[in-house]
Design a protein around this nucleic acid. Structure first.
Lengths: 200, 200
DNA sequence: GTCTATATAAGGATAGAC
DNA sequence: GTCTATCCTTATATAGAC
C-alpha cells in the first residue's frame, strides 16, 4: 500500500518535471538526456520507468490533462441558464490558460503532431472534455448558429490571445490584455453583443 | 542578368520544396538530409546555397511569407465602408488559410519557437502585414472594443477552425465546416450579430 | 555547383554491475 | 532502482575532388 506510493514517487516526479520541458520545446526538442538531467538521474534510469521516449511523452500528456479539463467541465453541469454557464466557463477557461502556460503549449504542440494515430488519441483524450460541454452549451445558446462552429469560436476567442505570443509585437498591445479577466470580458462582450451594425 | 536567374534556380527550388517539409514537421523535425532528398541533391550541396540549417529555414519563411500577406492587405486599402472591408478581408483570409495549408502550419510552428530573437524577427516580418491592417480596421469598426483585442478576435475566428485539426474528432463536425466560405460566413455572422441576448 | 568522404556531436536505447 | 559504459543511428557541418 505504502509501497506502491513510494514506488510511484520517482515516476510521478519524472512526469511532473517533464511537463515544462515538453511544453517548451516539444517532443523532438526534448531528449532523454534533457529529462534525466532535469530530474537528477541518468538517461538509463528513465528506461526503468518507461519503455521508450514516446511512452514517456504519452504519460506526461496524460498526467497533465487528467484533471484540469474536468475541473472546467464541473462548471457546466449546473442548472443555471445557458448564458450564466457560458460566462462561468469562459472565465474559468481563461483563468486556466493564463495560469498554466504549459497547458496551452502542450496542446499547441499536439495540434502539429503529424503522427495521426497519436494525434487522434491525444485529441480525444484531452480535448473531448474541453470541447464536448461547450458544444452542448453552444447548442442551447443560439440555434441560429452551427453549434460546432460556435463552440469552436468560443474556445478560439479565449485561447487565441494566449497562443499568439506574437501579439506582443503588434500595435495596441498592452500587458493587461494578458490578464484572464480582460480576455474573458472581451470574449463575453463580443459574443453577447457582436459589433455595432453597419450603417446600411 | 540571365545568369542571375539561372544561378538562383536551384536555390529557389530548394526553398520551394522545403516549405511543405518545414510546414509538416517543423524545424527540428526536418533534417538537412530530408531537404536534400526532396530536391534530389546531397546534404553537402545545400551548404553551398545556405550557410547553415537556420539560414535555410529563415529563407524558407521569407520565401513563403513574402507575397501572401500583401495580397490580403490590398483589400483593406479600398475606400469602402469598414464593414465591407471586414467582410472582404475575412473572406480572403479564410480562402488563403484554407487553400494553403503550409501557410498556417508554418505560423503555428513559429509561435512555438522558443528562440526569442528568431521568434520576434519572424513575427514582425510575417505578422505585421497581417495584423496591422486588421487593427486599423478594428479601430474603425466599433469603438466600444479594444482594437487590439478585436483584431485578435477576428483573426482567431477565421484561423482557429483551420488550426484545430482535432475538431475532426469532436461532436457536430462536418466536412463542409472546412470550406472557407462556411468559416468566413460564420465569423461574419457572429461578429455582426453576436448571440441572442440572455433572457434576463 | 555538386559530389564523396568524413569529422564531430547528439540522441535513443540496452547490458550488466551495484 | 539507479548507475557506468557502450552501441548504433542520425544529424550538422566541412574538406577537397570533380
Amino acid at each position: 500500500m505504502v509501497k506502491t506510493t513510494i514506488k510511484r514517487k520517482t515516476r510521478d516526479e519524472i512526469l511532473e518535471l517533464s511537463v515544462p520541458l515538453f511544453a517548451k520545446d516539444g517532443y523532438d526538442g526534448v531528449s532523454m538526456r534533457d529529462v534525466a538531467a532535469a530530474i537528477g538521474l541518468t538517461p538509463a534510469a528513465l528506461y526503468y520507468h518507461f519503455t521508450d521516449k514516446e511512452q514517456l511523452y504519452l504519460d506526461v500528456m496524460a498526467h497533465e490533462f487528467r484533471e484540469k479539463p474536468s475541473e472546467l467541465t464541473s462548471v457546466l453541469k449546473g442548472l443555471e441558464p445557458p448564458w450564466v454557464r457560458l460566462e462561468m466557463y469562459i472565465t474559468k477557461f481563461a483563468q486556466l490558460v493564463a495560469t498554466d502556460k504549459n497547458f496551452l503549449r502542450l496542446i499547441q504542440w499536439m495540434r502539429l503532431d503529424s503522427n495521426v494515430a497519436r494525434h487522434q488519441k491525444l485529441a480525444e483524450y484531452v480535448f473531448k472534455d474541453i470541447f464536448d460541454p461547450v458544444h452542448e452549451l453552444a447548442a442551447e445558446l443560439d440555434s441560429r448558429y452551427d453549434a460546432h462552429m460556435l463552440a469552436m469560436s468560443i474556445i478560439a476567442l479565449v485561447s487565441f490571445p494566449f497562443e499568439s505570443t506574437i501579439r506582443q509585437f503588434m500595435p495596441g498591445y498592452r500587458p493587461e490584455q494578458e490578464k484572464p479577466s480582460v480576455v474573458a470580458k472581451h470574449a463575453i462582450d463580443l459574443l453577447r453583443a457582436g459589433l455595432s451594425k453597419p450603417a446600411s
